[in-house]
Design a protein around this nucleic acid. Structure first.
Length: 294
DNA sequence: ACCCAGGTCATCA
DNA sequence: TGATGACCTGGG
């Protein structure tokens, strides 16, 4: 966790344990952080740009100031949470011990709810590379530009920025049949038929029901939005990878999503979301095949 | 050509 | 409720 930090020459220097940029930004939870040099990432969230450089447990934050760092990025990067303690709590057997050792620097980001909603609508039946491309296209089309050291970044557009557009207007971003889902989300959120900005104050089940009123939002997408944008850490999104790895390690093949979620709830309780992230990263990075633990 | 990718929808029993 | 196909798009 965040130990101490100081501001020097418009840079913030900090010592943070249990934090790795590559693991955190490439574990599949977010789509808008890019590596710009070795151990350096550049991203934008809620219209705020941030560059982060890492050397072991030392970090340098650039492009921000003390007030924004304290008022926004500490929460976004979840720097106050003791991940050592979480790892200790969920590592009750050897598989999770291995997974948490492998991804011991993962942190679950507190993303903007609306951005998480649209991003994970786009994620359905899709691959991460193309998801990133489509999200970026949407931002370039409707988001506010912000330049940073010769990099042109675009904020994720608000519902009002996209409202009025039709599916045909999204043609250039190549999101296929998901265009209709995005437009439905824009309309329902903009017209306040769905209150995505209140999911952090709702109970888990309530949040699921609220989100699933949008077309293209099923159980998996709703789980992701609640975990990554709603801070609902009991959420256990079950996608092909998590299904595969959970079955291989703890269950049998062809289990039902409900059974997989029950197991997660029983084993990890309100920390299931963290467990899910370690398992997902572990399985995907090691390309674990069905039933085979390499 | 076929299958897959951080699934969901419509349809049918 | 639960099972079955179809589905934009791009890469292997």
């Amino acid at each position: 966790m965040l130990k101490d930090y100081y501001v020097l020459d418009r840079e913030i220097h900090a010592k943070i344990t249990e934090f790795d940029l590559a693991q955190t930004f490439e574990c599949g939870q977010c789509f808008r952080w890019n590596k710009i040099y070795d151990n350096g990432y550049l991203g934008i969230s809620s219209g705020k740009v941030l560059e982060i450089e890492q050397k072991q447990d030392r970090f340098v934050f650039r492009g921000t100031d003390r007030a924004t760092f304290e008022g926004y990025w500490i929460d976004y990067l979840d720097l106050k949470r003791d991940y050592g303690k979480i790892i200790e709590k969920i590592s009750t057997e050897m598989h999770m011990i291995r997974a948490t050792e492998y991804g011991n620097g993962i942190r679950i980001l507190l993303q903007d709810e609306w951005e998480a909603l649209v991003s994970f609508i786009i994620s359905s039946n899709n691959n991460i590379k193309r998801i990133k491309k489509i999200v970026e296209g949407l931002c370039k089309l409707y988001g506010k530009p912000a330049d940073y050291k010769n990099n042109m970044l675009f904020a994720f557009p608000d519902p009002k920025d996209i409202y009025g557009a039709g599916c045909e207007d999204l043609g250039d971003i190549k999101c296929g049949y998901r265009a209709g889902y995005i437009i439905d989300a824009v309309e329902k959120v903009h017209l306040e038929e769905v209150d995505v900005y209140s999911i952090r104050n709702m109970k888990y089940e309530e949040g699921i029901k609220e989100l699933m009123r949008i077309k293209g939002v099923g159980p998996k997408v709703a789980d992701c939005v609640l975990l990554y944008g709603g801070a609902k850490y009991e959420s256990y999104p079950v996608d092909v990878w998590v299904k595969r790895v959970t079955e291989a390690l703890y269950l049998k093949k062809d289990s039902k999503p409900a059974d997989i979620k029950d197991l997660a709830r029983n084993m990890w309780g309100d920390l299931a979301g963290f467990a899910q992230q370690y398992l997902f990263y572990y399985a995907r990075e090691n390309k674990l095949e069905t039933g085979v633990d390499k």
